[in-house]
Amino acid sequence: MISRFSDRRFAGRVARHAILLLTAAFALLPFVWMVSLSLKPPQEIFQADFRLWPTAFHGGENYRIALTAAPMFSFLLNGVLVCAAIFALQLLVCIPCAYALAKLRFRGRDTLFSAVLVGLLLPPQALAIPHFVMLNVFGFLDTYAALILPWAISTFGIFLLRQFFRSIPDEIIHAARLDGLGEFEIIWRIMIPMTAPALAAFGIFSVVAHWNDLFWPLIAVRRAEISTPALGILLFRDDEAGQFLGPLMAGAVIIVAPLLLAFLIAQRRFIDGLAVTTMK
């Protein structure tokens, strides 16, 4: 009896691993394939039999071409710059607004909050035409400003931070006022430190979204020098050097790696951050 029970258990465990390994392979295969190709010389890529590891290691050459033929580093740098600027702007705009919506009483608060909720409905792609026209009018197209400015407001960020600020008891804010803190100092010294995990979650959400975004950069910029990673890899592919698969895959690795490494280092943070922010 006992042995039958444990046999079934064992079989169940094996089945679990078998299925999960299969789905994990599905998830990971493109990454493995990408890295594998990025290490191979052209003739080996076209060879009839496939090997995971190249017989002739060509990685150095592939990565060298990727890095020199296209401004890979500046793609990454642009990504960092643009994401950081967007997030900083969003915080600057969202935090005071979210605090006022959560903790201050003023006429028009409910109307403003309804407006934020309506804003939450609007898909950003639907605003592309007017944003494009506006940037064109101001002569900002094909500049960093074009990549950053349309994202300066995040109704999602306002909504999320308002929820978190509301969970802080009023008594803490009252105590801070009696202790002599002004409202902006309360935000800076009390609200921000107390909601740091929420801010981090929002940061992860925002950075992941904009690092990976292709739609808007494709519209807003043409020049490679200011391209973000998602657009950069496309420009590289349509370039001469990108016709060769080895360097192209090397380029893809370089583009994809930073976020994935960050994710692997702080997995829990990322997963919880993204799950929490969407579930709110």
Binding site: F31, L214, A230, G251, I255, F263
Partner: peptide
């Protein structure tokens, strides 16, 4: 391991991974 492995595609830049899928 499983959680991280399955989550990896979510984090990856789609335009780059689409190129990879193109070759696959």
């Amino acid at each position: 391991f499983y959680r991280a492995a399955h989550f990896l595609p979510v984090m990856s830049t789609m335009s780059a991974m689409a190129i990879v899928w193109g070759t696959m």
